[in-house]
């Protein structure tokens, strides 16, 4: 395994980016077919969605998702930073513009029930204030990290999603910054809190999903996880060993999830 642990400072972050492997690994159709057959073997009645957080929690489901200032901050914060990259503005103004666009989407009927736009449109004024404060925190933090980076970076338009063929399974990998250099890419993912003992397997799961979501199966050369609240970062390299390990963890999580659901139903 290629797990590295560093302090989150400018020099260390740039070193992690600069020392990433120069050669990328590519997943083939056989790899995809093999993964699909393993997921099919762990069938569930409905559709399942897996992500690194599920891997870290060994398939245990947390509390039901609800929109709140803290769950909305990443979506709004990343979109604001993307906006700032094209139109220079203060973080606060970019967040306000982004909020305005989200709410406009809801009032013009382009949002579905349960979406962020829908929730924001019905949220009281002080809650919008708190959402702004959280999104400003997130965007400022991400902006500082991006300013540390010595190479060009971009904020991806969305997380990476991969639908496993005929297995009613969607995999999702979080990604906040993409650093490209010629044929390779390094992904930066930001998390709140501090890394737990299973943070490494979580990063590997994201690495594998990111590679699967690439239409040519090209894996990022390095996946860097940042925990700014704890001031630490971890990284895994896009080697075939790590990709296999990530895939195994995802299948194991699906098995554990099915077991938990069966116990809950019993």
């Amino acid at each position: 395994m290629t797990l590295l642990h560093r302090r989150l400072v400018k020099a260390e972050l740039n070193d992690l980016v600069a020392t990433a492997p120069a050669v990328f690994v590519q997943l083939t159709d056989e790899h995809r077919a093999s993964l699909s057959s393993r997921f099919r073997a762990v069938s569930v009645p409905g559709h399942r969605r897996l992500e690194a957080w599920g891997v870290e929690r060994a398939g245990r489901s947390g509390s039901t998702f609800r929109w709140s200032p803290s769950t909305a901050r990443r979506v709004l914060g990343n979109a604001s930073l993307r906006r700032m990259a094209s139109q220079p503005a203060s973080v606060r103004d970019a967040v306000r513009d982004e909020l305005g666009d989200q709410m406009l989407r809801a009032t013009s009927g382009y949002s579905r029930s349960g979406s962020l736009s829908h929730w924001l449109a019905s949220a009281p004024h002080p809650v919008i204030g708190l959402v702004t404060a959280e999104a400003v925190n997130w965007a400022t933090q991400l902006q500082e990290i991006s300013q540390w980076l010595e190479g060009p970076w971009e904020v991806p338009a969305s997380d990476a999603y991969y639908d496993v063929a005929a297995a009613r399974t969607t995999l999702r990998a979080r990604r906040d910054l993409v650093i490209r250099s010629q044929e390779t890419r390094t992904i930066v993912r930001v998390r709140s809190g501090s890394p737990g003992k299973s943070a490494g397997p979580g990063l590997r799961a994201d690495l594998t999903i990111e590679a699967l979501a690439d239409h040519e199966g090209v894996a990022p050369v390095r996946y860097i996880g940042l925990w700014p609240e704890a001031g630490v970062c971890l990284s895994v390299d896009g080697t075939m060993t790590d990709l296999r390990s990530g895939a195994r963890d995802l299948v194991r999580t699906a098995v554990a999830q099915r077991r938990h659901s069966a116990l809950k139903a019993a």
């Binding site: 709140s68 606060r92 002080p126 809650v127 708190l130 702004t132 404060a133």
Partner: peptide, 27 residues
Amino acid sequence: GQLLRLLSVGMSIDHPFDDALTAWRGD
């Protein structure tokens, strides 16, 4: 603390207690 957060992003606060309470519950 909630009111400080609202002030930090330039929100206008007309009813401190109600606004702080709404923000807190929403969080």
